[in-house]
Simulated assay, not measured.
Amino acid sequence: MIPVRQQPEPTDFESRVRAKGVAFLQKASRPQAWENREYWRDSLKDLYRAYDEVCAYSAQWIPRIEGSPTVDHFIPKSVRPELAYEWSNFRLSCLKMNARKRDFQDVLDPFQIQPDWFILDFPSLIIKANPELEESIKSQVKSTIKRLKLNDDDDCVKHRQDWLMCYCKKQFPFDFLKKTAPFIAYELERQKLIEVISSIMSVS
Rank of each mutant, 00 (worst) to 15 (best):
R64E: 15
R64M: 13
G67P: 06
T70H: 11
T70K: 10
D72M: 03
H73L: 07
F74S: 02
I75G: 01
I75W: 10
I75K: 14
P76L: 04
K77N: 07
V79K: 15
E82N: 08
L83S: 04
Y85C: 07
W87K: 00
S88C: 07
F90G: 06
L95A: 14
M97W: 05
N98A: 10
R100M: 14
K101Y: 10
R102G: 15
R102W: 13
R102E: 15
F104Y: 15
F104T: 15
Q105L: 12
D106C: 14
V107W: 01
V107H: 01
P110W: 11
P110F: 10
F111Q: 06
Q112K: 13
Q112W: 04
Q112G: 00
P115N: 09
P115T: 07
W117Q: 12
I119G: 02
D121W: 02
D121T: 13
F122L: 05
F122H: 00
P123S: 05
S124Q: 10
L125K: 05
I126Y: 10
P131D: 12
L133E: 11
E134K: 15
S136I: 09
S136D: 15
Q140R: 14
Q140H: 11
Q140N: 14
S143Q: 15
K146L: 09
R147C: 09
R147H: 07
R147Y: 08
L148Y: 07
D153E: 11
C156N: 14
V157W: 02
V157S: 02
H159M: 11
D162T: 13
D162A: 10
W163C: 08
M165T: 12
Y167E: 02
Y167C: 01
Y167R: 00
C168E: 05
C168G: 10
C168L: 05
